[in-house]
Computed example of a mutant assay.
Amino acid sequence: MNTKAEQSKGTSSADIGKLVLAVLVLAAGIVGYTYLGNIGAASPLRLVTILVAVVIALAIAAFTAPGRRARHFLAESQFEMRKVVWPTRDETIKTTGVIIVVVIVLSLLLGAIDFLLKWVVLDHLLKLGS
């Protein structure tokens, strides 16, 4: 039996209100960024305006059901990333070298086939008809 409780898939009206508020805060940040650009404000102030709006909007959205699911997904992804065995530098360099050699060999082979087909078609078959 599953030990995790089933979560409802629906979004409550409170969550919808929070998401609308997050979108409005983000829109206000964009409007503020544009307004400050029109009046000639310094660009660091404009950047701070948009960054603050994005942070506040994400903070509001994080306390909704979709936000909690996203946080849970990110936490599980981070846990799974700890299980990954990454190749060493030496393995990476050797694998990259093999791939480069294979690409060069295949490109030479395809070039030779292309040259051979061109030679047969253009130099021999088409001259027979003329």
Rank of each mutant, 00 (worst) to 15 (best):
L125K: 10
G32H: 01
K94L: 15
Y35L: 11
D15H: 05
M1D: 13
L24S: 10
L106C: 00
I104D: 05
L108G: 03
N2L: 11
V105F: 00
V20R: 03
A42Y: 05
E91H: 00
A57Q: 10
S43C: 01
I93T: 07
L74T: 06
Q78C: 02
S13W: 03
K18P: 05
A14T: 14
R89Q: 10
K83L: 12
V121G: 07
L126Y: 10
A59P: 01
L125S: 11
D114L: 08
S130A: 14
Y33P: 01
T3H: 12
A59K: 12
A61N: 05
E6W: 06
G32Q: 01
G29K: 06
I39G: 11
A28Y: 01
L24C: 12
T49P: 03
A53G: 07
L51F: 14
G32P: 00
S13D: 07
I60G: 09
V101L: 09
R71D: 03
S77N: 15
I60L: 15
N2F: 11
P66G: 08
S8G: 11
T3A: 08
R82N: 09
G37M: 00
S107V: 01
V23H: 01
V48W: 11
R68D: 04
L116C: 02
S77C: 08
L116A: 13
G97Q: 08
A41H: 10
L51E: 14
T49W: 02
V23Y: 06
W86Q: 15
K4T: 07
L122S: 13
L26G: 06
Q78D: 11
G37H: 02
G111D: 00
R46G: 14
V121Y: 15
H124E: 09
K127C: 04
L26A: 08
L116F: 12
L21N: 11
L26K: 02
T3R: 11
K127F: 03
R89A: 03
A59R: 12
I113S: 03
L21T: 12
R69W: 01
V55W: 14
A70H: 09
T49C: 14
R68E: 10
T34M: 04
V55C: 10
L126F: 12
V120Q: 07
A62D: 11
W119S: 15
T92I: 13
A59L: 12
G111A: 06
V31R: 02
L106Y: 00
T95P: 08
A70W: 09
Y35A: 06
L110T: 00
V102S: 11
P87Q: 02
T96G: 07
G17S: 07
I30G: 00
T95Y: 06
R82T: 14
M81V: 06
G111S: 09
I60E: 05
V52A: 15
F79A: 08
A42P: 04
G32C: 02
D90F: 03
L116Y: 10
I104F: 09
K18S: 14
V52K: 05
T64D: 06
D114M: 04
Q78G: 10
Y33G: 00
T92V: 13
T3P: 00
R46W: 01
E80Q: 14
Q7W: 04
R46L: 05
A65R: 15
A75T: 14
R68Q: 11
A61P: 05
E76F: 04
I50A: 09
E6I: 12
V23T: 04
P66H: 13
G129K: 15
F73Q: 03
E76I: 03
V103H: 02
